[in-house]
Nucleic acid binder design. Structure first.
Lengths: 461, 461
DNA sequence: AAATTTGTCTATTTACATTTC
DNA sequence: GGAAATGTAAATAGACAAATT
């Protein structure tokens, strides 16, 4: 029985286990989840200490801890020794960011899509390919090692991102997300921890949550991952690896300094953790910085993909995996896909080696520059981060409105945006910001209309 | 300290924990794994009771149990209350069945591939498609709900397999394996159990092992899953679902009776478990039986794929998911792929709705019939199961040779086969049999040569 | 049919490490 | 910089249930 009455103490959460179905820890986890989902426990709330909860419920601390762990692996909570247990800020935000059906008249500036300039040339290229005499083999099973030139093409693509891997290290996947999932599934077990930026690519969050892999935010310094914080996490949190987007970070658009890249590489080597370096957006940058992989090639899995920047329908990505991790990632890719479509693989590779890719990139850069200029014109009074060649921006909100509230406000006015909350990791405090995709509206007119609406809303804040 | 000396008792395994790195349960699991991999503990070996091991090591039973659990989730062990803990028969068999590089002069009769008849017509169809005016959209992102006709095509394909789902239930995946992984990842958590045939599709085994999902074999009766055994597993093993291949089962080639289909459907309904029905090979059958899904439409996830029977490069599968599971599977597919390639999706759908698929099927059936006739001619003295239209056979071995030994023997003689051991689940006893793929050799001559070699080997046994 | 063997699961004990104040 | 607060993780105890004899 509880030693004290808790009637007088203010506790942020008072669960009941009366009608609970055994086992205790699952009943408690269930109630916790419900209360968060219902809104009884708001994001950011600090729960009572686990010992106090245990005392209140007259059960053991470990039982409470186990219940919290269940919710933590679902991404609902985040607990730190010494500090306490907190409801995650993104507990109520949906990180599945695909517009399954876009209502008419809604201007899409949420999901990140490239402009459509490459679609036509890709069709043309594919037509040529199919006219060649040995085209039939494109529907056969492709033996990965029979096509070394595909790997050479991948190397060529990665070199644009500042990394020059050994062709032997290349594996193939159905796009960047597919690669991320394979890497996590192959290198981590349930309950393992991965470090990430306090705001990160939402697809990492959803996959990690599905696999029961815990994301630990690594504190930032100067807008990029802090070396000290990373060392701390290696020493104390037992993280197995980290996930990085050094070029044009999604969603914050930050490009990491060369010094920090090197430091992070060194730390990874010293502590034996792996780095997942996602080169999703690097080909749109005009400037090439050395990849983190170039400083820690035995630790870094480098992902180069084309679907996000060139064409969503070109579902191919190349993954360079250091020898020690290769077998595990290769097996995971087998489990996810058996193999990739030779048609996509060959098309992608030909676009790269033919030099056509360079034209594509220039076109996309020019289109993005035009679109960004428009965004700048409308939003010059606000802080709106992002390179001129990027396809999304990170809009810091004026006043005191939260990202979520602005997202809702914009949606009511016909523009879809995604709030910082959707990207936050663990108990990180979400920035008051939204991600604004400038590539998604099909025409410049539609983009301009969206910007006009947003400016009006911002001016009213 | 141990109460008794165990020097005199014969124990099948005597681990040491002297030089062990903490924690205990992981050290024990590591040693167990090593001893299995090294061959100190042979497949099928019964370990000493966990209590006895605990006593011997002077630790708690639960610690031993936890160590065994770790190995069990890796597929190395299988423990049953009352019976004991056994080394899995497939602990040493590799279930990753793709020939990454095929040595010259090796005749491939291991991996299951269709013959190449459809590749050319697919190329032609694709060319036509690309000449249409709106071809560009094939490289855009495809909004799943914007293309209802794709779902109608999927329904049409499934109807050939004896199931007529609601088009709303259709989701898209990058092939059958991709679908299986998404279903498991979406509907199960780490540690959950799935029932399967004692020999089953090896891709299910590798995925389950990666995700930490435990496969429980359901005893057979008359060559198909026994209803009583399934009820037992529902009641006692707490299985979340089962995986079935009712038509032309891989690897045993068995086609399930209609009565058993119905019974299994009823049991699934009664106990609230889901059924994964893999229709990988049904389109090659001349006969159509009602799918299990047609008896339990609210419980059954039906997979219809074309890559295994038509063309490995056509990486598309359609999944019909009942309402209650749809959101979870859809999210998992998002995590695995974001979306499928519209190009593949549209090509697949057009092949179906245009009726071209029927021609393809007839061709493949005719080719398979020709190849099977050849196999029958050579192997008429042996039990070699399989329909005349199937693309693999299940060869029961004469004498007392095991599948693994015969696989090794055949490989030494230039023919790749896959032994029953690669397909066994849990502690099921592997049949003395091998799977023989008759579609994989590129020419009839090569097939004949392979068969000649095999016949000679069999005659010598 | 009852007793025994055997694995499983939850809640607890206990030692520990980090963060906060 | 030391004490208190706080979460974590392994090992254990003990009740339980299925399979075997």
């Amino acid at each position: 029985m509880p030693v004290n009455s808790f009637e007088d103490y203010p506790m942020s959460w008072k669960p009941t286990l009366n009608d609970a179905v055994k086992p205790l820890y699952l009943a408690l986890a269930r109630q916790l989840e419900q209360d968060i989902k219902k809104g009884n426990l708001l994001p950011g709330t600090k729960l009572p200490p686990q010992r106090e909860l245990a005392d209140f419920l007259d059960i053991n601390v470990s039982t409470v801890s186990k219940a919290c762990k269940v919710c933590e692996l679902k991404g609902l909570l985040s607990a730190t020794v010494g500090s306490g247990t907190f409801v995650s800020f993104d507990a109520l935000a949906n990180a599945y960011l695909l517009p399954d059906d876009k209502p008419r008249n809604l201007i899409e500036m949420g999901a990140v899509f490239p402009d459509t300039a490459s679609f036509g040339p890709l069709i043309d290229h594919l037509k040529e390919m199919l006219n060649e005499s040995d085209a039939e083999k494109l529907f056969n099973y492709s033996r990965p090692n029979a096509n070394l030139w595909l790997k050479d093409a991948a190397v060529k693509l990665m070199e644009k991102g500042g990394f020059s891997p050994n062709p032997d290290s290349i594996l193939f996947s159905n796009g960047g997300q597919n690669a991320i999932t394979a890497i996590l599934a192959g290198l981590c077990r349930h309950g393992d921890k991965i470090g990430a930026d306090p705001h990160t690519y939402s697809g990492l969050k959803t996959t990690a949550s599905m696999l029961g892999i815990q994301l630990t935010p690594i504190r930032h310094l100067d807008g990029e991952m802090d070396a000290e914080a990373l060392i701390d996490a290696c020493k104390n949190e037992n993280i197995k690896g980290i996930y990085l987007i050094p070029d044009n970070h999604n969603p914050t658009t930050h490009t990491m300094s060369v010094e920090r890249r090197q430091m992070i590489g060194e730390i990874a080597k010293e502590y034996g953790i792996f780095i997942i370096e996602d080169g999703a957006y690097h080909i749109l940058s005009r400037e090439t910085r050395p990849a983190v992989a170039s400083f820690a090639s035995e630790q870094t899995i480098y992902i180069a993909s084309m679907s996000k920047t060139l064409a969503p329908g070109l579902r191919m990505a190349y993954v360079s995996v250091p020898e020690s991790y290769r077998k595990a990632v290769s097996k995971a890719l087998y489990n996810l896909n058996i193999s990739v479509s030779p048609l996509m693989a060959v098309l992608g590779a030909r676009v790269i080696v033919s030099g056509q890719l360079d034209d594509f990139i220039k076109n996309h850069q020019n289109n993005a520059t035009r679109r960004n200029a428009l965004a700048n014109a409308y939003l010059c009074d606000y802080q709106c981060r992002g390179d001129e060649t990027g396809i999304f921006r990170w809009l810091l909100l004026p006043g005191s409105i939260t990202g979520s509230d602005f997202e809702a406000l914009a949606l009511k006015n016909g523009v879809r945006l995604y709030a910082a909350e959707r990207f936050t990791v663990g108990n990180s405090l979400p920035s008051r910001a939204v991600r604004m995709s400038i590539g998604a509206p099909e025409t410049l007119e539609e983009l301009e209309q969206g910007l006009r609406i947003l400016k009006k809303l911002l001016d009213q804040i």
